[in-house]
């Protein structure tokens, strides 16, 4: 078995009496894309800053490629890429100047520098913006520039803090494609975001943090499976009165309304055996004008919120990389 690229052991960081990071431990293998998820104040950014050697932990160790980041930050930094959540543009600086400077700062010189800057501009589609002042870029263009800067030294391990925040749908899609290419090239990425579904699509495994601790570490399906034996989620479409459906769900034992839709509702049923579900479908069809009854995978957000509501679970070992999942579906 290969040595993990990133080893985090019992990491702690306090700000006064606040425990921003409280005994966090995990490992990341090379070539993984890992999502870091948690509410505001969960400790994501602090953890990422420590991993990027930009902050020092009060306790615990972090090793990247076997090198301790506290004792030897400069050795680790050459292998790191960092994309912060907040990015301020330099005044009086063009896109070309910016990339040229960071290329020089990474030790590139002469033709090698010009070539590398040109390549990065092509990859991030920034070439047409070469002479544009940085403070005149859109949010999406700025994020691409920030990604381009991070790629100049071709880092092994990249840390991206809320990279998709504030991007429009087109820029979001472009960004996802760039992450996919990076993964295909064998890079290790740690990405934080509030948008769980988006991370679920991009990442191999997910690290869930709450109150400074890792509460779950696994692929998206492992979290969704946590309660799947007891709970099943359905999307119900009816013809006519949606309110009647709400009332029906409220009085029927075992049902819980999750979300009211324009033509129906999403609801959880306490039992997942096919016979019970089939009985409920028959009852529903008899009581209301049922159009469609579809079993759904639990949304990542719902699974995460449920997990937090039930209290922090002990961190679990990450499973092997996810296989393609098959949803059980019952159609009326």
């Amino acid at each position: 078995m290969s040595t993990p690229l990133v080893e985090v052991e019992n990491l702690t960081r306090h700000f006064g009496h606040v425990r921003a990071v409280d005994g966090v431990s995990f490992t990341l293998n090379a070539g993984q894309v890992v999502g870091l998820i948690g509410a505001n104040g969960a400790g994501k950014t602090t953890t990422m800053r420590i991993l990027a050697s930009l902050d020092v932990p009060d306790g615990g160790t972090v090793r990247i490629g076997g090198v301790d980041i506290v004792d030897h930050p400069n050795r680790v930094r050459r292998r790191l890429g960092w994309m912060p959540d907040h990015f301020s543009a330099y005044k009086d600086t063009t896109v070309g100047d910016y990339l040229d400077f960071f290329g020089r700062a990474h030790g590139l010189r002469g033709r090698e520098l010009a070539k590398r800057v040109s390549e990065v501009m092509e990859f991030t589609d920034l070439a047409p913006l070469n002479a544009r002042p940085m403070d005149a870029l859109s949010k999406g263009q700025t994020q691409r520039l920030c990604l381009g800067r991070m790629l100049l030294n071709d880092p092994e391990f990249m840390i991206l803090d809320e990279p998709a925040a504030g991007l429009d749908p087109k820029a979001r899609l472009e960004f996802k494609n760039l992450v996919r290419i990076l993964r295909d090239r064998g890079k290790t990425l740690l990405i934080s975001s509030h948008i769980l579904s988006e991370l679920g699509e991009m990442c191999d495994t997910l690290l869930f943090m709450d109150a400074g601790r890792v509460v779950h570490h696994g692929d998206r399906h492992s979290l969704q499976r946590l309660d799947s034996e007891a709970l099943a989620v359905f999307e119900i479409t009816v013809h006519g009165d949606v309110e009647a459906l709400g009332n029906w769900l409220a009085v029927r034992p075992g049902w819980k309304l999750v979300e009211t839709l324009r033509t129906g509702a999403r609801a959880e049923f306490a039992q997942s055996d096919p016979a019970s579900i089939a009985a409920e479908v028959r009852r529903l069809a008899a009581d209301l004008h049922l159009v469609e009854f579809r079993r759904q995978e639990r949304r990542l957000e719902e699974a995460f919120v449920d997990m937090l509501r039930q209290g922090a679970r002990p961190a679990i070992k990450p499973p092997p990389l996810p296989a393609v999942s098959v949803n059980g579906e019952i159609k009326s």
Binding site: R104, R109, L113, K115, R116, S118, G186
Partner: peptide, 27 residues
């Protein structure tokens, strides 16, 4: 082992000449 991310450009462009690259980057 990871490979280089970006796609190599066909022709290496000419370096910029406003400041020589041997000068300190920060300067």
């Amino acid at each position: 082992m990871s490979t280089a991310v970006v796609i190599p450009v066909a022709e290496a462009p000419e370096p910029r000449f406003d400041f020589p690259t041997w000068l300190p980057p920060m300067f």
